[in-house]
Design a protein around this nucleic acid. Sequence first.
DNA 1: ATTGTGTACTGTTACACATAGTGCACACGG
DNA 2: CCGTGTGCACTATGTGTAACAGTACACAAT
Lengths: 130, 130
Amino acid sequence: MELSIITGSQVPIYRQIKDQICQAIANRTLKEGEKLPSIRSLADQLVLNHNTVAKAYHELVKDGVIESRHGRGAFVLQQRKVFNKAERSRRLKQVLDLLISEAILLNCTPEEVREEVEKSLEQLHSNSGK
Amino acid sequence: MELSIITGSQVPIYRQIKDQICQAIANRTLKEGEKLPSIRSLADQLVLNHNTVAKAYHELVKDGVIESRHGRGAFVLQQRKVFNKAERSRRLKQVLDLLISEAILLNCTPEEVREEVEKSLEQLHSNSGK
DNA sequence: ATTGTGTACTGTTACACATAGTGCACACGG
DNA sequence: CCGTGTGCACTATGTGTAACAGTACACAAT
């Protein structure tokens, strides 16, 4: 597990941790059932307060990505939480509203947005090939 | 100009104003050169503090969408600021990173993301048909 | 018992959002 | 010139979130 944190970013640190762990699971860098670094050791490694890492882990538990066992550690869930179609659609739409606002502001064509979306979607391909 | 503000939303009010004005320009509800409602009148209408509306207008000026003339009011710019391709790509990517993180978390397929993107992109079609 | 772990608090600092209020400068119409 | 409408700039306050600092506790493995 090697995470990189950008402190100057607008993205909160706990969110960066959360995102990178999700990506690591998608990449199979972290496998199902595998143990995550402990809250304190990851906090030491990243030179952060342990509460910040704990918040990221707590969000991942809430989202059904990992499981934390008191006194033992945190583990990638074998069975990923299944969001129903409506929930997925709702949560994607929240982010897509931001995307559309930005596209209007930048005067992008729909084609250009599609092109950029395709570029970014490549990160999903590795996950779908399981 | 009829804007609707959702106070309970996670989206800041000034951002909602900014987005809706951008959309109105894209929809041709607001035409180039047209005068926007004054900061104070819009604040009264939406029952907000004038500073909040002023912040939204200031962001729009910064982004080259509108122009504000001291003592006269704010106007939609005739000549929209032109962002170069690299800048557009960079700013889109910031939002797309969020989208990908959410897609990984929700276990979406690339196809499902494309589908949702297409739904949202319909808001851009009206703009491209100028 | 000791160590490593997650959990749960209390404080504190910093920043963003929003409100409230005031004063000032500019533009326009009487 | 004067009043009104406007944008601009500033201070101050309250609220919420992010992050840090520190502490205490409960559980698990050895």
